[in-house]
Simulated scan of single mutants.
Amino acid sequence: MSAAAPEGQLSGSRSKAVYALLLGLGVLDAAGYSLIAPVLPTLADRTGAGATVMGMLVATFPLGMVAGFAVGGFAVQRSALGRVILGGLLLIAVGCLGFVFGSDLAVFAVARLVMGVGSGCLWLGVTFATLAAWPGQEYLCMSRVFAAYSAGGLLGPLLGAIQGVRGPFLAYLFLILLAGVPVLALRLPARAGAFTSDRRAMRSRGFWAASAGIAFAVLALGTLEGVLPLHFATRLSQSQIGVLYAATSVLVAVAAALAARLRPRRALLASTVFVVVGFTAAGAGTSVPVWIGALAVAGVGIGMANTGSVGVLLDAVPPRRIVTAMVLWSQIGILGYLVAPVLGGPVADSHGYAAVAVIVAVTALAVPLALGRRNPR
């Protein structure tokens, strides 16, 4: 990937090093999302909590991210991007300590909330550093950033496959602290001062179509990580769930990268079919082979939806006026990660896991409706 990295405002070896760092930070940030998935059954066993309570625990992370996006959006226009990224890493590290030393659900919930705030800041730091460094190639670069975030879904479950609760978060804490070293050593683009806010962008059809797309993609991810692990735990161990999710993330990453070859609208529209089919089979299935095939299909759809939605956003909003639109788009998207476990947990408890796919299917309907009319721009 580095050989094809764009050269924009940076050049030579520094360009490649910065690009590799940003992609690596994306992998590490996304690992914090999926880290919790294999650990959920263990947490449920230790606390005696069901799918509803576990869903609420998972939801504290995206709730924190909503706040983190607001903080990060303010910071990227007023502070060095390296500081924004370091602040995000520090908050994630503090949250990890809650799982390492905590022992009850209240502590875990607060810790997960703090991790979410840090993740929101880190996402915007990585995004605007990418946009600032390689102007004119935003869609290509952001498709690779999304591929890196999807690859983080591979690292997270592998860390989560470590037995127990403390072990996975202790390993993640080590990696977070390690990541701070190159952030300090490499000179990132100073700040995103060239980017401005334009609230008029949020009145465009393209912005709301992109928002519907990212909300759908992230709701699917939240359902996958925040609800279905308890279904899979009926036949799989914590380590096996981690491996299953890691394999799925490979397909998400590949699909996210390859989707850049398609027109954003087409990629986004096609993603709804893959996701709905995959989740329907996963929820209704009761055997491991069915789950493997179902998650493979769903993973391809999630990757396509991620890339397609950011492409629709970049088509609708000029990158140099994208700050407010990017913050709100990110907040709308992560609300999907919040809604998925909050709704999916009670639905699973009351009607079974097959019914959880209905939530994903209903959300999918919003995507073609939003894409029905092209942005006038």
Rank of each mutant, 00 (worst) to 15 (best):
P168N: 11
G283Y: 03
G167F: 14
L221A: 05
L251K: 01
G50N: 12
L89N: 06
P135A: 05
S237M: 08
L175M: 06
I162F: 13
A298F: 07
V243R: 11
A31M: 13
G242I: 12
G372F: 04
A305L: 02
A217I: 01
M65I: 14
V362L: 15
L343W: 10
M1L: 06
I322E: 06
Y19V: 04
L21P: 10
R321K: 14
G120Y: 04
F101S: 04
N306L: 15
P318C: 14
G87L: 05
V71M: 14
L371N: 08
Y33D: 04
S13Q: 11
S239P: 02
A257Y: 11
V117D: 02
T42H: 08
L22H: 03
L236C: 03
F101T: 10
F108N: 00
G24A: 03
P289E: 02
L262M: 15
R46D: 14
V327F: 03
A296M: 13
V27M: 13
G344I: 04
A217P: 01
G88C: 06
L258T: 10
R266Y: 13
V317F: 07
L57S: 03
S271E: 06
A106N: 06
G299F: 07
G68M: 11
G152K: 03
V254M: 09
T248H: 00
A201P: 00
A37R: 01
M115N: 00
P368A: 02
Y19E: 00
A192P: 07
A305R: 09
G160N: 11
A215D: 00
V165G: 06
L173M: 12
A340Q: 08
H351D: 02
L173H: 09
L173Y: 09
F174L: 14
M142W: 12
A111C: 05
V276Y: 11
R200V: 00
D198E: 14
